[in-house]
Design a protein around this nucleic acid. Structure first.
Lengths: 204, 204
DNA sequence: ATTTGAATTAACTATTTGGTTAACACACCT
DNA sequence: AGGTGTGTTAACCAAATAGTTAATTCAAAT
């Protein structure tokens, strides 16, 4: 019965991830998580004392899946061109594996912004100024890029990667897609987005 | 006591809007809405039979506040240049007045995609192919725009407008902003976004 | 074989919460 | 002044739900 510990705990986390990601903290039910994991509800409390702590585990896992790669975009020393061409497709691929994750994180951040503030403070992220901002600034100073606040560009890049997943139902209805078409749309996006965004910052 | 009807009903809708927009259906509490409206909880049921119907009213109101303007972007006959330069700032202004609205709508759509499908079907939106897509296609055929699927551009434009509000807590932390700085950021965005996006589709 | 202790379960508890109801208030009409 | 009906409230109810507990199973140590 040694392996069972990790097996049960893993089943719980996986089920909790599914439910929390789709329904958020308020919409999630402990019973539903237990059912999805195929175990008794008391087990959830046996391994994770409370709904709050189970949620905390899922939420931290979620942050761990988006932010490291995000940081590597922000902090890369590479020229922006290579940086974006490499990381945008990789980032979209990462999100594709957990399509509900961005919406989940954004919704829970809106519900409780202090959590993020505290986490950032407790982890002690010194939050150095992103190098990509400096790169953009340099390109502008040299007259290669158009004059737009680097922060605006940065947010636009993130928006372009993340938004389609957050707005999937809307996009599907607006453009008349089924799930397969939507998947093709995302794959196409991986290819075309770097070109579009880079073209956006370059001077004519 | 004639005027009281509309006054109470208006107070309820306003309170419900505040609470639903911030917390979503699952996180909202009828008692909290009643408190925020400063009236008895039974009044909510007196005017709107159930939580579901109260939510429905708020949700439809929300759709009514985003989609008409969205449609006018999609369906405009104007050249894209003028279209975007005019509507992006106007759209951002609209969202600024109800900053929690986009996140609310997106979250509730994820929670229950059928609702949207049914609404669209029931309203009988024939969902004609957006003219802006044709405009983009034409520009590409004429060699003025770079070769990128018009749908990708369209989603990027929407993403650029909407995402900052959905991700406000994240943006604030990542870029070290307080609420005032964030507001300035949005105002700056209104000015710079059309330029950036138009530059993105134009050939060198 | 017996004991031990962690893993697991069914049944239970306390609280929250959407919804109801019966009484009350009060403007309006006659 | 008295009756009528809508608006409003406090108290209540039933269902849902997070969390608890006591009993059970079972692998591993003795």
């Amino acid at each position: 019965m040694e392996q069972e510990i990790t097996i049960s705990e893993e089943k719980i986390i996986e089920a909790a991830r599914n439910v929390f990601h789709r329904k958020g903290f308020d919409g999630a039910r402990m019973q539903e998580i237990a059912d999805e994991a195929g175990i008794n509800k008391a087990m959830l409390h046996y391994y994770f004392r409370s709904k709050d702590q189970l949620f905390e585990a899922v939420f931290k896992e979620a942050l761990g899946r988006i932010f490291p790669m995000l940081l590597s975009i922000l902090m890369s020393d590479e020229p922006i061109e290579e940086n974006l061409k490499k990381f945008i497709p990789a980032y979209i691929d990462t999100i594709k594996k957990h399509p509900y994750l961005p919406g989940f994180v954004l919704h829970e951040m809106t519900r409780n912004p202090e959590r993020l503030t505290n986490m950032v403070r407790s982890v002690g992220v010194a939050s150095a100024p992103p190098k990509i901002l400096q790169q953009l600034q340099k390109g502008m100073d040299e007259g290669r890029y158009i004059a737009i606040a680097p922060e605006q560009i940065l947010v636009s890049v993130l928006a372009a990667c993340i938004f389609p997943f957050v707005a999937k139902p809307m996009v599907k209805v607006a453009l008349g897609m089924d799930d397969e078409k939507f998947d093709q749309f995302i794959n196409q996006r991986k290819e075309q987005l770097p070109e579009f965004l880079l073209n956006g910052i370059k001077k004519k």
